[in-house]
Amino acid sequence: MNSGLTNLETSMFYLTIMAYFLSMIFYWVWFGFKQQVIGQFATLLAIVGLAGNTTAVVLRTIIAGRPPLSNGYEFILTFCWGIVAVYLFAEFRYRIKPLGAFVAPLPFLLLAYIVMKMGPEERVAQAIPPALKSQWLTFHVITAILSYGAFAVSFGLGMMYLLKSHYGGGASGKASSRIPDLEVLDELAYKMVGFAFPFLTLCIITGAIWANYAWGTYWSWDPKETWSLITWIIYAGYLHARLMYGWKGKRAAWMAVFGFVAVLFTFFGVNYFLPGLHSYAQI
């Protein structure tokens, strides 16, 4: 039965990546040609992908008997879930479909990374060391996923902003004219960061609580911790620059993009380039 579930999970993984891939293509085509049906398909595919993603995550939880948050494969899978969930929320709530053309590549690329770089032995549910057996770890990763998902969406908004402001609303900007007003983008990116920032804070705090239970030190300046703090400071800078100096528009958009690069570095770069406590995450 267990191998049946494992096979089902694997199928769900491939369904998810296919759906995200097609969804990305449809968002692009829709972005270029504005066929309403195509746009609807794009959204539908994103929903199908999210359903597959959800199923894969749930199956992994059942197979492993614990939340699926303990190795690189599992974390990327849930990270993608967070991005698409936050994105779809934004699409429905704020009616901003063009955003899909910018956000959809992220989950696809992340999952493609799994396919390219991770052997089957890295993807299976592994036994976890005692240090990872903690409820706090669950909270830690859930908050990470929500904040990273929202940061990913603000990244997409920032890219849209930069693209639109670069090409302007001029004659050449047929696709660009489909992008909402600059002000709307800017405001929405701020909303996303404002939503994500408290969650990032909570993520860092729950991580500290967990570390204190496991090792007796709530903060040890290991590279992953340090980079999450740096990410936090970058977004704090974004919020302050906006509040106090009215940094909106281009500069804010650059900061949203830059902030997400820091998120990705915290996530991948640290595991690749830098050693530390978190290296057991072995992405």
């Binding site: 340090t226 980079w227 703090l229 400071i233 830098l274």
Partner: peptide, 9 residues
């Protein structure tokens, strides 16, 4: 602080 912290990693 962010810059110095980054160097330390």
């Amino acid at each position: 602080i962010a810059f110095v912290a980054a160097i330390g990693t």
